[in-house]
Design a protein around this nucleic acid. Structure first.
Lengths: 242, 242
DNA sequence: CATGAGATTATGTCTAGACATAATCTGCCG
DNA sequence: CGGCAGATTATGTCTAGACATAATCTCATG
């Protein structure tokens, strides 16, 4: 491993483990130079790479800081509902239960230790009087214990988690399904109507954090994206729900 | 503009304009140093940035080359059907017509000059005997004149274009629709069955190249993706159709 | 107390040179 | 002609120092 890669990896590990939280100040270049015994260019390169990865922001004179994931931006290429639906958005928690993980829960979240507890939520998102999405979510309480005491009345679980769980890997799947009777009733569409379904599993350092399924009425939502192979100065624009 | 940014922009422009084609050799660092009168580190940084953007690949001793977009990789985050469906894949051109762009064509492709000619294609993709997708495509013949003489018997239009049009911007949209009668018949599903619909508009240097709609049976396909905010050595993995 | 000028500081860019590394090329030898 | 050893070459990484730039901080002055 090269020296700049070693410095980068050390800082990256501290951010991903949560030891450094969003907004925290990183060591300055001069401190990294002293600590690692390298030239300033080498330390600078390590930080520049972290900026390119979106983990760090730098401001002249002020220093380098752990990047704060902005809710209105897409963390996984698919952003938070609260930001996309705008000011008319409201949500209601339809169902909320804490339980020991069942076999079905483990199938959704992946490997969990024996006796792990999960929080199951069902939330409906509205724009005015029109249902926009059903959110079925499982949260691994071992990864996010604070969630057990949260009622998600103020912020929907997606936004709430986005501000607390610093950085994760994610897998998603977008498919199309016919609405079953229960879903159709909640979304105010005909049974059998086409729905866009987004499944996402988020992990932090390999530990499953949350699994979620969003079900959107097919006539009201689509994922749109713009991409370009050009060099980007800013993080790549992701997908938006419109 | 900084000096390394200027060098990078010059090379980038030559690649995007098509003056340098995929696989072509770029000037070596030493040549860039001589041409621009900069230190080698500066020229190296310009090339390193282009590598990070995925436009360039570099090999020791051999030199730097314009990256060849690999078909099995995703150009726009959503890859080529031929690669995803594997060896059992077959396609058939159901409809093929060259015409002056109609108003509907212009709505799909965006601004076109008066009298512009387009190639309209409908292609069905199969895996064995099972229909997998319907592809409705418009190609702007001003951008890709060679397409007029191509019958797309060997390679489907997506793969064919991917190998010829070097780099573009793209917009996409993923939605869910109920199959109409014609689509249902072609995909061998019931009328009204949920379908996943992908629309994509590709441009090259602002010029519309192709607009395409893929319609997948909802019970046979989904887009899956994996993302991570970690620093990536390789270009970010995109979405796959499974 | 408010404010603006100037000092300070961390980052941003660049240079000239050095050594390392890997792949290609060359030419010798069987 | 075939294949291996060594020379060559382009990239990869690093250093030590320099100047530029922008934002913050300090402090004297009104």
């Amino acid at each position: 491993m090269t020296r700049h890669a070693a410095i980068r990896a050390q800082i990256e590990a501290r951010i991903l483990s949560g030891a450094l939280r969003p907004g925290d100040k990183l060591p300055s270049e001069a401190e990294l130079v002293a600590e690692h015994g390298v030239a300033r260019m080498t330390a600078s390169r390590a930080l520049a790479d972290l900026v390119a990865a979106g983990l760090v922001v730098r401001r002249r004179k002020a220093g380098s800081f752990v990047a704060v994931p902005r809710a209105e931006e897409s963390l996984f290429g698919i952003p938070d509902l609260r930001a996309t639906l705008g000011p008319g958005h409201a949500h209601a928690v339809l169902h909320r239960a804490t339980r020991a993980a069942t076999a079905a829960d483990k199938a959704r979240l992946g490997a969990l230790p024996r006796g792990a507890r999960v929080l199951a939520l069902q939330v409906r998102h509205m724009a005015g009087a029109v249902p926009q999405a059903i959110e079925d979510r499982l949260i691994n309480l071992a990864a996010v214990p604070e969630a057990a005491a949260e009622d998600f009345g103020a912020a929907p679980p997606g936004s709430w988690l986005l501000e607390r769980v610093p950085w994760t890997e994610a897998e998603h799947r977008i498919g199309a399904l016919a609405a079953d009777a229960a879903t159709a009733a909640l979304l105010a569409v005909a049974e059998g109507a086409p729905c866009l379904v987004l499944d996402r599993l988020s992990r932090r350092e390999g530990l499953p954090v949350t699994a979620v399924r969003f079900t959107y009425p097919g006539d009201r939502h689509a994922f749109t994206g713009r991409s370009t192979p050009r060099l980007r100065e800013a993080p790549q624009p992701g997908m938006r729900i419109s």
